[in-house]
Design a protein around this nucleic acid. Structure first.
Length: 301
DNA sequence: AAAGATGCCTGGTAGC
DNA sequence: TGCTACCAGGCATCTT
């Protein structure tokens, strides 16, 4: 499933491959994604160019002069840039053809993704607090978009606004386990199930620990761990960008570096203790009971 | 008002 | 072999 690093890698690949190319044809083979694909999508996009491509959480924002195409990859979505003559993929739902004889192919087996349209009148807006650094860092290229799906999303994990001070303050009012806290995009954008477990391992924090009981030091460690694991995955994804053009992108980016996710019963890389799998908020959660001890306070008389 | 819990969408796969 | 349960991300909706 595409996590934030995959979406970011896709974003960068699209930027390299399809910016400023005139759209010549749009085929919608399956209009019933998570929400219906706008019926007039082809009319809207014909003759247009994508002038800017950015990411917010796990959403891709492809901007034209009249509006923005908002894409979410869902569970199984994939965007590939292929030669226009490439035969239709079995699970291909949408294809956007360019004058350059390239095509943007949206392949999504389970149709959980989304292709939505946001009129230009809803942007640009002043960047919300904390997002200016995105551009400054040169890591991401976000801009504000006034859309209901985006407006309640918390800070991007890789920007300066996401720091221990923010996290400590935010977590203080949330009594749920920190694992679930991290999965709520209102708290931090785009941290999915895999990276939540991985980051907690990196920070040596038990996933059951109440968010509100995190110490400031916990938050410092957690911010660093989240950023480290995401950046490492993005770096890895970056080395596979060429695959987007060849269509040979079948590898996934995170299979190599996972330390706890999916490693139930296997020895912890740090201490050899078997990794434990539990359910937390209907989600698989993995941790090392030795490296991430449950720190429930036991009172002694 | 804000936090937390639950349900839903699809389709492949594991287990029987 | 054919059936059911389960799982995934994240939004909508309901409850507290």
């Amino acid at each position: 499933m595409p996590e934030l690093p995959e979406v970011e890698t896709t974003c960068r690949a699209l930027r390299l491959n399809i910016l400023h190319q005139t759209i010549t044809k749009i085929n919608v083979y399956e209009p019933n994604l998570r929400w219906p694909v706008p019926e007039n999508l082809a009319n809207l996009l014909l003759g247009k160019q994508f002038l800017d491509i950015s990411r917010r959480a796990k959403y891709l924002l492809l901007k034209t002069d009249i509006g923005t195409l908002l894409i979410h990859l869902g569970l199984t979505g994939k965007l590939l840039v292929l030669p226009s003559k490439t035969p239709l993929h079995f699970h291909e739902r949408i294809r956007v053809n360019f004058a350059t004889q390239k095509s943007l192919c949206y392949i999504d087996q389970r149709k959980f993704g989304a292709f939505l349209w946001v009129e230009a009148e809803f942007y640009p807006l002043a960047a919300p607090t904390g997002f200016k650094s995105v551009m400054e860092d040169g890591i991401l290229n976000n801009y504000a978009l006034n859309h209901p799906l985006l407006k309640n999303i918390g800070p991007e994990p890789l920007v300066a606004a996401f720091n221990a001070t923010y996290l400590y303050k935010r977590a203080a009012s949330h009594k749920i386990p920190v694992k679930q806290f991290l999965l709520d995009s209102k708290n931090v954008a785009g941290v999915g199930n895999i990276y939540a477990s991985e980051a907690l391992f990196g920070a040596k924090i038990n996933p059951f620990k109440a968010a509100s009981s995190l110490t400031f030091a916990d938050c410092e460690n957690l911010v660093i761990a989240i950023q480290k694991v995401l950046e490492a995955a993005i770096f890895k994804g970056g080395t596979t960008i060429r695959d987007f053009a060849s269509g040979a992108d079948e590898r996934g980016y995170f299979q190599t570096e996972l330390k706890v996710y999916g490693r139930t019963g296997k020895p912890c890389y740090a201490c050899k203790t078997p990794i434990v799998e539990i359910r937390l908020g209907q989600r698989s959660t993995f941790y090392c009971p030795c490296c991430q001890p449950d720190v429930t306070i036991v009172s002694h008389q």
